[in-house]
Each structure stands twice: as structure tokens, then as C-alpha cells.
Nucleic acid binder design. Structure first.
Length: 301
DNA sequence: CGCCAGGCCTTAC
DNA sequence: GTAAGGCATGGC
């Protein structure tokens, strides 16, 4: 096993690893301390986060100097991609609109980055996300890994990778329901089959203009406008995507009422205008801020 | 108990 | 194209 560091001088702008990995953008990382997902992190003893990437166990934590990692050769480049370390975050955040809620959100979580996670796990995670709370999505994704994913051992411990499309396509709907997926079970098997068969190909979706890419993803089962936007934003690099979930809709009603349109498409276009040149980044900060307490939470300002 | 959660599907018009 | 109703499960 190799280890190394990524000095904060080697990536652009600030980094907040906990906010990045525990803000509901990705459900593919396990905190290796005993604290639960979403629990506060001490700044002096930060937890390791673990995932399995292309068959290799990978761990990362935040230090006072940047990031520290353990894993195999090439982890540095994997992290640079998945955590978007090349994004010039100060420049991005400095160009966000001069709006009170947006600036408060950035003030509290400055350093949170968008993620760039693998396509299939992201699709399934956000199919599961419909009408579910974030910690429970994370638990269900972990259940899928341990039940259907390939095992990888390291130093005597066993870790599970997120299952392949073929594996979930072959899963029994009854078993998935029994694991707690509820009515989403057939969505998972059907969408997994569409992806396994190549009918939806992320490399093709990537090449499309934003709204066409969203329509393409909606051919999957259990993927509507909102879930498609999540996949586009957190996995396919469409930084203009603004998933309109209950929290963002409530933010629109309270703070940007003029952006409320008749349809998802109209509201989406209007709020993207209001969120500035990096709508996806703005959305992620506002979502995390409101969902984690927002104005009534201590620590505002 | 009722209400809600990073909504989507089917059906009816 | 939009509008209703149903839907699994868990936390509060």
C-alpha cells in the first residue's frame, strides 16, 4: 500500500473535505471513525474517508496542510478528478451573485467542492434518493455494496465495491425490496439493465447539450428531471445543472419567487440565470446550507 | 398518530 | 403537454 499527501499549494483554492463528501452529492464514501455520517468533525483529528475505486481501496483525509491519502499508485490523480481539485474555487465562489442566502451558504462551507463521481453508482444512488433522507440513502447504498458488490481485501479487512450494472440488473426485485428499497426496487433493476446493455451510455450523454442530456437520462426508469440533474451535476460535469428538489424549491419560493415557473424546465432556466455563472456550485452551497440548518442554525455569520 | 423526505410512475384529460 | 393519486420505509 502506498501513501502520500496532496499539499494545498497543489490544488486551487480552499478545501472542505467533510462538506464535499457528506453534503449529499455522493454516497460512495464511508467515514472510518466511529462517528455517524454527518457528525461534526474535529479540526485536529479529521476522519479518514474510504471508497473502492476500480478495484482498489482508497482512503483520504484532510490535514492542516492539505489532503493525505492511502491506497495504490495513481490515487493522487483519482482524487484530483473525483474531488475536482483543479477547480479554481476562489474564482468560482467570487463570481457568485451578491445575494444574502448564497453568500451566507458560501461563508459557512467555503471549501466545499462539487464531486465528479462514477456514473453508474451515481445513477443508482439518486434513483434511491426519491422521497428519502440523506443518511438513509447512504445506508442503502452501503447495503447494495455489501450485498451485490465485489469484495476486496486489504490487510485482512474486506471492503466492497459498488456493484456492476450487470450485477444489479440480475438482482431479484423481491430481495431489493426486502433490503429496504421499497417501490424503487424495479427502477434499480430496470435502469441497471439499460446501462448494462449500453442503451444509455454516459460517454454519449456527455457529448449532448445540457437539456438534451437531461432528456436522455430520463429514458432510465426512476429518473425524472431532478434525478437526471443530480447525475449530470455530480457525475457528468454539467455544472449548469440545478436539481430542483424540495429544498431548492423552498429557497426559490422564499428568496427567488420571480424564478418560479410553470414547469420544471422553465423554473430550471430561470434559477440558473439567478445562480450566476456557476449554477451547480451555487445550488450545492444553498442546498447544503438550508438542509443543514440554514438561518436558524448556530454559527451563522 | 400524522407528516415529510434531494420524486417518479401511471393514468386521465 | 399538465394534474391527480399511489407508492415503501423510517424518523420525528
Amino acid at each position: 500500500m502506498r501513501s502520500g499527501t496532496i499539499d494545498d499549494g497543489s490544488f486551487r483554492g480552499p478545501m472542505n473535505l467533510q462538506a464535499t463528501l457528506e453534503s449529499g452529492q455522493t454516497f460512495l464514501w464511508e467515514r472510518t471513525d466511529e462517528a455517524s455520517y454527518g457528525a461534526p468533525v474535529r479540526t485536529d483529528v479529521t476522519p479518514w474517508y474510504r471508497t473502492v475505486h476500480d478495484g482498489n481501496v482508497l482512503e483520504v483525509r484532510q490535514t492542516t496542510d492539505g489532503l493525505e491519502w492511502r491506497g495504490s499508485e495513481g490515487v493522487g490523480q483519482v482524487l484530483r478528478s473525483r474531488l475536482r481539485l483543479s477547480d479554481d474555487l476562489d474564482r468560482i465562489l467570487d463570481r457568485t451573485p451578491d445575494d444574502r442566502v448564497i453568500q451566507r451558504a458560501i461563508g459557512r462551507y467555503r471549501g466545499m467542492r462539487l464531486v465528479n463521481e462514477p456514473f453508474f453508482p451515481t445513477v443508482i444512488s439518486f434513483i434511491l434518493s426519491a422521497q428519502m433522507r440523506i443518511p438513509r440513502i447512504h445506508r442503502l447504498v452501503s447495503t447494495l455494496r455489501r450485498t451485490y458488490g465485489q469484495a476486496h481485501s486489504r490487510n485482512g479487512d474486506v471492503y466492497y465495491e459498488f456493484p456492476s450494472p450487470e450485477s444489479l440488473a440480475a438482482a431479484s426485485e423481491a430481495d431489493l425490496r426486502e433490503k429496504g428499497l421499497g417501490y424503487r426496487a424495479p427502477y434499480v433493476t430496470k435502469s441497471a439493465a439499460l446501462i448494462a446493455d449500453g442503451e444509455i451510455d454516459p460517454d454519449e450523454v456527455r457529448t449532448l447539450p445540457y437539456e438534451e442530456a437531461r432528456d436522455a437520462l430520463m429514458e432510465l426508469v426512476g429518473v425524472g428531471h431532478k434525478v437526471a440533474d443530480c447525475v449530470l451535476l455530480f457525475s457528468l460535469g454539467f455544472d449548469e445543472a440545478v436539481p430542483l428538489d424540495t429544498w431548492i424549491r423552498s429557497a426559490i419560493a422564499d428568496h427567488f419567487p420571480e424564478a418560479a415557473g410553470e414547469s420544471y424546465r422553465e423554473t430550471s432556466r430561470a434559477i440558473r440565470e439567478r445562480f450566476g455563472p456557476e449554477p451547480g456550485y451555487t445550488q450545492t452551497y444553498v442546498f447544503h446550507y438550508l438542509r443543514s440548518g440554514g438561518e436558524d442554525d448556530t454559527g451563522a455569520d
